[in-house]
Design a protein around this nucleic acid. Structure first.
Length: 275
DNA sequence: AGTGCGACCTGATCGC
DNA sequence: TGCGATCAGGTCGCAC
């Protein structure tokens, strides 16, 4: 589930809760979820301190002492839960970092569908790993001209492009639909066929939607919670996502749903004409 | 450089 | 009550 606003909310929560803490134990309940990239072993995490937490697109980077990085992809249903160590384990807990000198608290990785991954790597390997993914710019960092210039050089539908992570990174299915709605652009429009005013409106919609979603601490669709157990609020502000069959807030037309770029896609046929 | 698929997983929901 | 089909926030690899 987690897209940029959820991952950003998670990173902020982790900074508040685990920055500076020592890893005093590690328990791996499902070995397939964690990959310790050679020559590192998972047990070398013990006694490392968590120096800082950052995000690149949807990837979480936890900087550890000793020049190592714990890199976390949450996939569709991954969660990082900061919780007292005496609390019962949630179903589908795959990895536990025991924190503090007395192991009083846990950071637990829980992932129902197991699409997520945790990788322990040297810093240089982590950067190389991210480099290989060819991620685009951060959508809240790229400037308007760079965005509109890059967009026009790309082929294919605008929906597929926003989902691809290669123009900008961090946007997934929910936010793609919300951004295109607010820019009045049909998801099947050719990226290269958008006019300059349309590309400019798309840029500002992207910034506005992501900024507002971060302020509302992301969207909770079925089970997303931040590390402190809080749900997001932005789902209450979705204008098209999961609103098929209901009236558009702008014009009253029934919101449509169809598959575009292989994903369920929600849009207003009136406000987002295909032309 | 594109597209469309299936694969990877579990669980919720819906129609029968 | 059960059963199968379908769908779900993501990404990868493959054939075309």
């Amino acid at each position: 589930m987690p897209e940029l606003p959820e991952v950003e909310t998670i990173v902020r929560g982790l900074r508040r809760r685990i920055r500076g803490k020592v890893i005093s134990g590690i328990r791996i309940l499902f070995p397939g979820i964690i990959e310790a990239v050679s020559p590192l072993q998972a047990d070398t995490l013990i006694d490392a301190h968590i120096e800082d937490i950052e995000r690149r697109g949807k990837i979480i980077l936890m900087y550890l002492t000793g020049g190592r990085i714990l890199l976390v992809h949450l996939g569709m249903t991954g969660k990082l839960i900061f919780i007292s160590s005496d609390r019962p384990l949630e179903k589908h807990t795959h990895l536990i970092l025991e924190l503090g000198p007395r192991k009083a608290v846990h950071l637990r990785y829980v992932d129902i569908r197991r699409f997520g991954r945790v990788l322990l790597m040297e810093r240089s390997s982590a950067y190389r790993y991210i480099e290989q993914k060819k991620l685009g710019s951060e959508p809240l960092v790229i400037d308007e001209k760079s965005f509109t210039d890059l967009l026009v050089k790309r082929r294919g539908s605008i929906k597929a492009l926003l989902l691809s992570q290669s123009l900008v990174c961090g946007i997934g299915n929910i936010y793609t639909d919300e951004i295109l709605y607010r820019a009045h652009i049909h998801p099947e429009r050719e990226a290269a066929g958008l006019s300059l005013p349309e590309r400019t409106e798309l840029y500002h919609s992207m910034v506005a939607v992501l900024t507002e979603a971060i302020r509302k601490k992301g969207s909770t669709i079925s089970d997303y919670l931040d590390p402190e157990g809080n749900s997001g609020d932005f789902q209450n502000h979705h204008r098209v996502y999961a609103r098929q069959g209901r009236p558009c807030n702008g014009c009253g037309t029934v919101i449509a749903k169809k598959t575009v770029a292989g994903r369920g896609t929600h849009f207003c046929p009136c406000c987002q004409p295909l032309e």
